[in-house]
């Protein structure tokens, strides 16, 4: 299987629906549409990364940009993750609005100094002088048998670093709204694209719009338990919530959309109503975002909790290659159901 045919269709807008109110667009296609529209309205935006230009990205979500905007605004870089981030930092300080791509999220590790010690801290260290409108796009998530170095969810590492904003869209609508906000944002953002979501479609407005960074979204209202699910786990949690509604458990599902900043107020409000909290993410449980959410909820909503906070997350191991192990590794609706039932 190749990274080209897994994602067939990832890049196609359904053109007959393109003009109707319910126009549907793919998750991957939303990336390229958003970038194209922003690049048309703002000449300071450029895109750079490995194989993003002539090839359109290994996942196809940059396809069409280079033909329209040329090689100087859609740059094919050498394999050089540190220099790719540096290219973004330096040009952002000079007033451009770069979107730089690290093909797989695992590769942030190769560029960690530029991300953590440079991009995140420049403004602060310079006493506020530098503005850094830098967007880093990268593909995270498991489920393609891509093994331990091409499947990770490392968002918690990034969230730990003051100065970065970390964004995890769960569908194509959020891709468009959040990516627009990231590119227009004057701080460094990491925009994590889930590689298993690329071909999924949903309604996406034609024109650019912004979803504010730091505002979560109530996907489903409910009264018995608050389920906070991150990124692709929103889909799994939806299935779990439907299943449980047949069994008399009414879930309120919250999608934080951004994990840094984190919309804790929305969660506190929900938990004060439901008295129960389950947090779901694809990253390993130990030190994951769920740990931070749990800590903040017990600080702010302890009196409302009727049961310990439950986390549904990956076990503490690298991501195994074998499909049987990987399937067991990634949280799914079934495990979310079990996690919720633990509370009752």
């Amino acid at each position: 299987m190749s990274s080209d045919n897994i994602f067939e269709g990832a890049n196609e807008a359904s053109s007959d629906e393109a003009n109707s109110a319910e126009r549907k667009l793919g998750y991957g296609a939303a990336v390229v549409e958003t970038l194209a529209q922003i690049m048309r309205e703002d000449e300071s935006v450029f895109v750079a990364g490995e194989d993003v230009g002539a090839h359109g990205g290994v996942f196809g979500y940059f396809r069409g940009l280079q033909p329209e905007f040329g090689e100087d605004r859609v740059v094919d870089t050498p394999i050089a993750e540190q220099a790719i981030i540096g290219l973004g930092i330096g040009s952002a300080v000079q007033g451009l609005r770069p979107v730089v791509d690290l093909m797989f999220m695992d590769f942030i590790c190769v560029a960690m100094d530029q991300i953590v010690n440079q991009a995140a801290k420049l403004k602060y260290m310079f006493g506020g002088g530098a503005k850094l409108p830098l967007t880093i796009t990268t593909a995270g998530g498991a489920g393609l048998s891509a093994a331990a170095q091409h499947s990770q969810s490392l968002e918690a590492m990034l969230c730990h670093v003051p100065g970065l904003k970390v964004v995890m869209p769960s569908d194509a609508y959020e891709v468009k709204g959040l990516l627009t906000s990231c590119v227009r944002e004057d701080n460094p953002t990491v925009f994590i694209i889930n590689k298993r979501k690329l071909a999924d479609t949903c309604h996406v407005p034609e024109e650019l719009f912004e979803i504010p960074l730091g505002e979560g979204h109530i996907v489903r209202e409910g009264s018995d338990v608050t389920v906070v699910a991150i990124g692709r786990m929103v889909d799994e949690a939806k299935v779990a919530a439907e299943k449980l509604s047949n069994e008399g458990i009414d879930c309120e599902l919250i999608n934080p959309r951004t994990v840094q900043p984190l919309d804790i107020d929305l969660m506190v409000e929900s938990v004060s109503k439901t008295g129960h909290l389950v947090i779901v993410h694809e990253a390993v449980r130990f030190g994951g975002i769920g740990a931070e959410i749990a800590a903040q909820i017990q600080e702010q909503a302890f009196d409302y909790l009727d049961a310990p906070i439950e986390r549904v997350a990956a076990p503490f191991s690298p991501i195994p290659f074998s499909p049987v192990l990987e399937k067991q590794y990634i949280p799914d609706a079934e495990r979310i159901v079990a996690g919720i039932k633990n509370l009752f």
Partner: peptide, 26 residues
């Protein structure tokens, strides 16, 4: 070679002093 945990990008054979394929370029 890796008990199924590594796959194509991580095959190795320490007896043959082959210290691993690698998913990270370089």
């Amino acid at each position: 070679y890796c008990n199924g945990k590594g796959g194509s990008m991580h095959i190795c054979d320490l007896d043959l002093a082959m210290l691993g394929a690698n998913g990270i370029v370089g």
